[in-house]
Simulated assay, not measured.
Amino acid sequence: MGVIEVEGMKFYAYHGHFEAEKVVGNNFEVYVKIETDCSHAANSDNLDDALNYQALYECIKEEMKIPSALLENVAQRILDALHDKFPAIEHARVKISKMNPPMGGEIEKVSVTLER
């Protein structure tokens, strides 16, 4: 078993409940942790035997383009897409953070984490 983590992916997107968030947008950060069998790639040193990080990123990027009212919905869509496109994934964790959320105070970020 192996663990692949892709950290600090940054996106500008239009997720949020309030109308202003849907128009103005915000900065988001995404982290994923994937558990998969890495033994073939470790032995072969061949990308064809590995979970392609670039393809993983592109999958997440496409889901981040689709506006949602809730971070929970975005995280679930990302989990579903990852499991659909990468059957070698045994377990995945997705954390989405909305930077400087409009909550009436100084808040660095608010995050939602889902896993399957």
Rank of each mutant, 00 (worst) to 15 (best):
E29P: 00
M64Y: 01
G105H: 04
F11M: 05
N26R: 07
E5N: 13
G2F: 14
Y14V: 02
I34Y: 08
K61Y: 11
E58Y: 01
G105M: 10
A41G: 10
M99K: 11
K22F: 04
K98C: 03
A75W: 04
S97Q: 07
V24T: 14
M103N: 01
G25V: 10
M99V: 15
S44C: 05
V112N: 05
G25C: 07
S39W: 05
K85H: 08
Y31E: 14
E63R: 04
K22Q: 15
E72C: 01
K98H: 01
V112H: 09
A20T: 11
A20I: 13
Y53A: 03
M103L: 15
Y57F: 15
G25E: 10
I107N: 09
G25S: 07
L82D: 03
H83T: 08
R93M: 09
L114R: 14
N27M: 12
P102C: 02
I78W: 00
L70P: 05
N43Q: 12
P101V: 06
I107L: 14
G16F: 10
K61F: 06
E29C: 12
Y14N: 10
E72A: 01
I4K: 09
G8T: 06
V112K: 06
E63G: 00
D80A: 02
E63K: 08
C59R: 00
L114D: 01
D80P: 00
A92V: 13
S97M: 08
N46C: 04
K109F: 15
S68H: 14
F18Q: 13
M103V: 15
A41T: 03
Y12F: 15
G25P: 09
I107P: 06
C59Y: 00
A50C: 11
L71P: 03
E72K: 01
L47A: 11
V6A: 12
E5R: 15
L82N: 06
V30I: 14
H17G: 01
V23P: 02
D48C: 04
A50M: 04
P101R: 10
D84L: 04
H15L: 06
I96E: 08
